[in-house]
Design a protein around this nucleic acid. Sequence first.
DNA 1: CTCGTCTTGGCAACCGGTTGCAAGAACCTT
DNA 2: AAGGTTCTTGCAACCGGTTGCCAAGACGAG
Lengths: 320, 320
Amino acid sequence: MAATIKDVARACGVHVSTVSRTFSAPHLVNPATRSRVLAAADDLGYRPNRAARALTTGRTFNMGLIVADISNPFFPPLIKAAQAQARGRDYHVFVADTDEDPRVEEELIRTFTKQVDGVLLCSPRLSNKMIERLAEDVPFVVVNRRIKGMPAVLMNVAQGAKLALEHLAGLGHHRIALVSGPIGSWTSNEMQGAAAEAAGLDLIFFGPNQPTEAGGLAVAPEVAACGATAVLAYNDLVALGLIEGLAAMEIGVPDQISVIGFDDILPGRLNRPKLTTVAMPAVAAGRMAVDLLLQSGGEGATVTLDTALIVRESTGRAQT
Amino acid sequence: MAATIKDVARACGVHVSTVSRTFSAPHLVNPATRSRVLAAADDLGYRPNRAARALTTGRTFNMGLIVADISNPFFPPLIKAAQAQARGRDYHVFVADTDEDPRVEEELIRTFTKQVDGVLLCSPRLSNKMIERLAEDVPFVVVNRRIKGMPAVLMNVAQGAKLALEHLAGLGHHRIALVSGPIGSWTSNEMQGAAAEAAGLDLIFFGPNQPTEAGGLAVAPEVAACGATAVLAYNDLVALGLIEGLAAMEIGVPDQISVIGFDDILPGRLNRPKLTTVAMPAVAAGRMAVDLLLQSGGEGATVTLDTALIVRESTGRAQT
DNA sequence: CTCGTCTTGGCAACCGGTTGCAAGAACCTT
DNA sequence: AAGGTTCTTGCAACCGGTTGCCAAGACGAG
């Protein structure tokens, strides 16, 4: 059907290797011949078959990007940043969604192996051990997970959690609910770790939870019942669900309970009340992850990006 | 590095073809030999190289999915539905985002060619002519675009627009602004076409616009100035931006102006006021697109899915 | 015991390119 | 004019599998 390198070679009476060189090493072929080949190629609509080329060169010039849930508005900016950065490096990014399922995640990685030059693994749900094993077959850069010897882009969640807790303490909150995320989430662990170190606060942990609005909605009754005056939620989606759930029980935010999320997604900015949140550097992370993959020959550089507290309307003084 | 079919063959003293058959035609190899091969393969951690296999078989068992803007909450449900459906058919879906740029779209399609068995083209921005040309190299299913002889999944936008206009007319609105989308959008054209047929209404067209909140925000002043009492927006994102922009000018929705969007995305349900919208069958479309790609040998079946008006809080009686 | 049939597995060509090697041509040098 | 360079191009092996064809061996029937 589509023209191959042989068709082009035949069309202009030259060996296939010459055609091949015309595209991948133009300086090695006589300008006159080159233009003859290019003319014939253009004429037949020839495009090099990237998969076939990859077979011998070992490079596909594309990379995979795996996320747990593409519906989470946190990811699209990261994805777009990665795609843009990759495009600037002559690479293409293929995205896939695991539906929060570690088995699907593994299967997708296996599928990507040999079809991409590396995989950006964002907020993985697989165990470190499994990731290390899979890393034997394809280079990784992990985002929001620390694995020894593996290049990683981390967001300083602990710092963000600390800022958030200080903010709440400053508003007079002492009893604070911590609504964590799914099992296998490094982010969730970091948050809990940072919270556990905070002195003088009475923390109640809830989890694991789905990292979605449904998850927030579901824990709302428990959170309301536990007597906390403020909540630190795993992410903005959970925070929004929580606010919705509290509203359904006629509990006002921030009047009766303060809520802080993580991520700084767009819907949080449009919500009433506008969400106070710890902004995560998603765009920078997407860019960095691509660069790390391209630079590191698998070497374990680790980049940590800062987070920032953004105070909006969902937090206020504790009731006295 | 990774084990190849040859390593396995050597390891258990059989020819590579036998190993190959063990995986792709197990019934042709003696059970005893087969288990020996499987053991060796497992031992060496051998995985067939999908790209190499595709070279001879011509099938990759993966498909591409191209969207204009992955940040638009309209797409993730469609993407997830497509991925789930594909997974059930032993296929994998690779997603890519064009950033609303036709050139990027073309480049991505070219990249996908030969690396996937087909491409789902969602709300493309390329011209029909260009799409037809590219279709010579890779099978397509287009979503929200009608192209002769090409399988398509359409959403009945005209019907939805009609419902929306009737709803507004019923509330006493006569002067209605139509805020359209980007150039090259079939959806936008359908909306305009349907609107133009509506009798007894005074329509003012605004466009083209970016199909985002920024786009809605930007036209808000013009819309406010045109004297319309209601707006039909290209999609929910534009509608939300519009509401935001109107609010900044102290124009209340729905008290002073009614707003209807298209898509029924999640943020629209959380917004205050909750958005009245025409729900698009994104999930069904994702599923159908996959099936169409797998069934049709490129034959031009067209599926049209119904839309539905969902009345919430952003529309109300016209001021008298 | 011989013949015919069925299983099994090796051989080799092929998919669409890439690339090291070498030969011939053209161009310089001295 | 001989010898040395530099260019240009063809040859053939190779990447990792798949598959049509064929021969050897197993097995059952007569």
